[in-house]
Design a protein around this nucleic acid. Structure first.
Lengths: 231, 231
DNA sequence: TATTATCTTCAAGGTTTTTACACATTTTTC
DNA sequence: GAAAAATGTGTAAAAACCTTGAAGATAATA
C-alpha cells in the first residue's frame, strides 16, 4: 500500500516543487495551503506523513503541530520545513514532537531520503512495534497478538487494528466513522455498523479467554473508547 | 450542517452584494441593518460568523463588536468590513477581538475564502478541543467527559451538550428556545420543557457525585445560565 | 479450484436516552 | 394573599441507538 503524504505550505510554488520531487515514487499526495486546512484534513482524511512548513500566516506550523500532538493523532510522523538558519525553531519544533526537519532550499534527493527514512522509522517505530501491557492484556503489535495470562487471543487483523487503536489511545472516543477512516481507508462507503460487529467479536473473544473486564466501552451516540485508568 | 452567517451593513445594496457572493455556498444567511438589530439578533438567534460593517450610523461596528466581546458571546467569529485605507480602524478592530477583516470593495472570491478560513479556524479552535476546569469541574470536551474529584460524571450526550454550552459561555443566559436551536437544530418542533428535564438530570447527576454547588442557575422568565465567578 | 477464514450486511430484540406529560412547587402579578 | 405564570420533578411512552446472531460476500490459503 502506498503511503499517503500531506504537503503543507502556503506557497503554491513550494507545494508544486515538493510534489514534483516526490512524484517519481508511489506516494499518494495531498496538499493544504494553511494551518486550518491541515487540521481539517487530518480529521477527515488520514495520512502516513505530513510535510509541514513552519512559516505560514495565521495558524503557523508550530500551532498546527502542537494541536496535532495534543488533541488529534499523536503518532502521525511530521517533517518540518524550515528556512535556512532557523535553528531555534528547528529545536523547538523537534521538542514539541516533529520527527525530522528539512531546510529550504533542499536537495530533492535529500527530501526523498528523509521522507522514506521517517516513514520507515514510523513503520517500525517503538510505539508501533514494542509490546506493552494495558489492563492485564499484553500487546505485541508486530505480530498482531494480544494475550491474557500468556494465552493468545486469536483476533483477526481488523479486530486487532480496532482494538489496538482504542487501547493505544486510551481515554479517547472514536466514532464509527473515524475508525472506518483510520482503519479502512480514506473513502470507506460501507455500513457504519460493521464496526459494531467487530467490537462485538473482540469482546466475545476476550471473554472467551476468561477476561471479564469491559475494556471497550460504548459511548452512547458517539462511538467507542477504552477508558483511562490503572493498567 | 450548514453555517449560519449574519450580514451587517446599513446599506441594503452592500448586504445584497454580500448575499450574492455567498449564495453559491450552503450558508444560511441572515441580515441586520444597524447595530442594535445585531445585538438583538445575537441574543435570540445564533450564528457561526458575523460579517460586520464598521461604518454605520448610531451604533457602529466597533461598539457592536465591543459589546459582543465584553457582554455576549466571546467566541463567535467576526469579520470586519472596512473602507479602503482605513488601516487604523482595522488594527483597532482586530485588537478588540475581530478575527479578520475585508476591505471594500472586495473580490467575491476573497470574501468566500476569508469566510471559510475563519469558519474552519473556529471549528478547530482550541476552546473546542482543550480541557478546562470550571468551578472544580473538569471538562474534556473532546471525549465528552466531565469529572469532579477525578470521578467521571456520566452525562448523556444531550446533557453534556447543554452543560458544555452553558459552562463555556459562563454568565450568558440561554433561553430554552435558544438552547433547542443550538443543540437540537434549527427547526425543532417539540416541547420547550424538554430542556428543563435535561437540566434537572444534570443537576441530579452532579449531586450524585457529591457536587453541591448550584452551578446551573435558573433565570426566571428567561432561561438558564452558569454564573460567572471564581472557578 | 475448493476450502477456509475473515469481513460485511442486515434485521430482530434489547437497552439507553430522549421526550412528553401530569402534578407539585415556586415566583410573580394584581 | 389569591390567581396566574413559570419552573421543578417523577413517571412512562417514544425514539434512538446498540447488541447480537446469522447469513451472504469477499479474500486468503491450500
Amino acid at each position: 500500500m502506498s503511503n499517503r503524504i500531506l504537503l503543507v505550505d502556503d506557497e503554491q510554488e513550494m507545494r508544486k516543487l515538493l510534489r514534483v520531487c516526490l512524484s517519481p515514487y508511489s506516494f499518494v499526495i495531498d496538499e493544504a495551503s494553511n494551518g486550518e486546512e491541515v487540521l481539517d484534513k487530518i480529521i477527515t482524511e488520514s495520512y502516513d506523513l505530513i510535510l509541514l512548513d513552519i512559516m505560514m500566516p495565521e495558524l503557523d506550523g508550530f500551532e498546527v503541530l502542537k494541536t496535532l500532538r495534543e488533541h488529534l493523532d499523536n503518532q502521525i510522523p511530521v517533517i518540518l520545513l524550515t528556512a535556512l538558519g532557523d535553528t531555534e525553531r528547528i529545536i523547538e519544533g523537534l521538542k514539541i514532537g516533529a520527527d525530522d526537519y528539512i531546510v529550504k532550499p533542499f536537495e530533492p534527493k535529500e527530501l526523498v531520503a528523509r521522507v522514506e527514512s521517517v516513514l520507515r522509522r514510523a513503520k517500525h517505530s517503538k510505539s508501533k512495534l514494542e509490546s506493552f501491557v494495558v489492563k492485564s492484556l499484553s500487546f505485541q503489535p508486530k505480530n498482531y497478538i494480544v494475550s491474557y495470562n500468556n494465552k493468545a487471543i486469536p483476533l483477526t487483523k481488523k479486530e486487532f487494528q480496532i482494538f489496538y487503536r482504542l487501547v493505544s489511545n486510551k481515554g479517547r472516543v472514536y466514532s464509527r466513522d473515524h475508525l472506518l477512516e483510520l482503519e479502512w481507508g480514506i473513502e470507506y462507503e460501507g455500513d457504519t455498523r460493521t464496526v459494531d460487529t467487530h467490537v462485538k467479536n473482540i469482546r466475545e473473544k476476550l471473554k472467551g479467554v476468561g477476561y471479564e473486564n469491559t475494556i471497550i466501552e460504548t459511548v452512547w451516540g458517539i462511538g467507542y473508547k477504552v477508558p483511562e485508568g490503572t493498567d
